[in-house]
Design a protein around this nucleic acid. Sequence first.
DNA 1: AATCGGATACTCT
DNA 2: GAGTATCCGATTC
Length: 187
Amino acid sequence: MRGDVSRVVPEFFDRDAVAVAADLIGTQLTVNGVGGVIVETEAYTPDDPASHSFRGQTPRNAAMFGIPAHAYVYRSYGIHWCLNFVCRPGSAVLIRALEPRVGLEVMRERRGVENARLLCAGPGRLCQALAVTADLDGRSLDAEPFALDFDTDTIAVIRGTRIGLTKAVDMDWRFGLQGSPFLSRKF
DNA sequence: AATCGGATACTCT
DNA sequence: GAGTATCCGATTC
């Protein structure tokens, strides 16, 4: 992460979502003490046709219009949970993949798979591994059960096009840790 | 590569 | 109220 960026949680997220998405790579995230290092993110903004906030506030996306540094958790395809970090109103960063570090056995139990590479490689998978559900929607990232440990090293971050979209497909708002085997898909 | 699951929201009618 | 699409993953082909 860049040295001039605040490591205080509320300040870190009160910035442009694209910058936050890039700077989150390398940050350790845990939920109730289980988690790992963020290796893949995507940014979404209010003027982005692919963003849930694009067409205004609804009961589902209300957290996205709240204050920065809170969680926005939504149900995807009726089955999976997806975890976002809210930045400025209507903006958020989707957490797409983690490198598992803490609580590997708990994650294996929750996921029902042994292979560490498959524990958190994808937004739905990491929510299952970290037990993220709707009850964390709107919760502060600066308090339990969340814990963030920002990276202080200089790391190689790569960027590319976002995944699974039909609108604004050519925005290069996906970020990843270069060379990580824990990405959901190659860049 | 194709299919399906089944919540939320939008678009008509 | 029906029809379609969606920030995906597991399973089957």
